[in-house]
Amino acid sequence: EVPFKVVAQFPYKSDYEDDLNFEKDQEIIVTSVEDAEWYFGEYQDSNGDVIEGIFPKSFVAVQG
């Protein structure tokens, strides 16, 4: 069931425009499960802007 919160276990950096880049310990709200390997989610950056994109499930852990 979406949405749910995950926390980055590792930093994720990608050159693909659709990917969500983040640092370790970033909290991310997952709004869609793309497939067995990928989530789609969002978070607010330090400027208060909402950043969204896809990212690999293996880089995050589900909270709770």
Results as ranks from 00 to 15, higher is better:
58 S>W: 10
51 I>F: 14
44 Q>K: 13
42 E>Q: 14
59 F>E: 05
4 F>L: 04
35 D>A: 08
52 E>R: 15
46 S>L: 11
45 D>P: 02
1 E>H: 11
39 Y>G: 01
62 V>C: 12
46 S>H: 13
1 E>A: 11
3 P>T: 04
58 S>M: 08
53 G>R: 01
20 L>S: 00
37 E>F: 14
31 T>D: 02
43 Y>R: 02
40 F>D: 00
28 I>K: 00
2 V>I: 11
4 F>I: 03
44 Q>E: 13
25 D>Q: 05
3 P>Q: 05
12 Y>F: 10
16 Y>Q: 11
60 V>H: 01
38 W>Q: 05
13 K>R: 12
63 Q>F: 11
28 I>L: 05
30 V>Q: 01
20 L>A: 02
33 V>S: 06
45 D>G: 08
43 Y>E: 01
56 P>L: 04
26 Q>M: 04
9 Q>A: 08
20 L>M: 09
2 V>Y: 06
42 E>A: 09
33 V>F: 08
15 D>A: 11
5 K>M: 12
48 G>A: 03
45 D>F: 05
60 V>I: 04
32 S>I: 06
61 A>S: 14
7 V>M: 07
50 V>C: 14
27 E>D: 06
52 E>A: 14
27 E>T: 10
50 V>S: 06
58 S>Q: 09
48 G>K: 04
21 N>A: 08
36 A>V: 09
25 D>C: 15
34 E>C: 15
26 Q>A: 04
36 A>F: 10
60 V>D: 04
62 V>K: 11
55 F>D: 02
62 V>R: 10
6 V>M: 01
1 E>V: 12
36 A>Q: 10
62 V>W: 09
8 A>S: 08
12 Y>Q: 02
55 F>I: 01
37 E>T: 08
10 F>K: 12
7 V>P: 01
19 D>H: 15
17 E>C: 15
19 D>R: 15
52 E>W: 09
30 V>M: 02
37 E>P: 06
56 P>V: 02
30 V>F: 02
25 D>M: 07
11 P>F: 05
17 E>D: 11
39 Y>M: 03
29 I>H: 04
17 E>W: 09
14 S>G: 08
14 S>W: 03
28 I>E: 00
49 D>P: 02
48 G>Y: 03
15 D>C: 15
50 V>Y: 07
33 V>R: 06
36 A>Y: 09
37 E>A: 08
22 F>N: 02
34 E>R: 15
45 D>R: 07
32 S>N: 11
2 V>A: 07
5 K>A: 07
56 P>E: 05
58 S>I: 10
11 P>A: 13
48 G>V: 00
37 E>N: 12
43 Y>D: 00
16 Y>M: 12
42 E>W: 15
6 V>Y: 00
8 A>Q: 00
2 V>M: 08
44 Q>F: 09
50 V>M: 13
9 Q>L: 15
47 N>I: 05
21 N>I: 06
49 D>K: 14
40 F>W: 12
48 G>I: 01
3 P>H: 06
14 S>A: 03
61 A>L: 11
64 G>E: 13
61 A>R: 13
9 Q>T: 10
10 F>Q: 11
3 P>D: 04
29 I>F: 08
6 V>Q: 02
25 D>G: 15
46 S>A: 13
26 Q>F: 03
33 V>L: 07
40 F>A: 06
36 A>S: 12
4 F>D: 02
18 D>Y: 14
46 S>C: 12
47 N>T: 08
64 G>H: 10
24 K>F: 05
18 D>I: 11
7 V>H: 05
50 V>Q: 08
28 I>C: 05
57 K>T: 05
4 F>T: 03
47 N>Q: 09
59 F>S: 12
25 D>K: 05
15 D>S: 11
3 P>F: 06
61 A>N: 10
62 V>Y: 12
63 Q>C: 14
10 F>Y: 12
11 P>W: 05
48 G>S: 03
42 E>R: 13
15 D>F: 09
64 G>W: 08
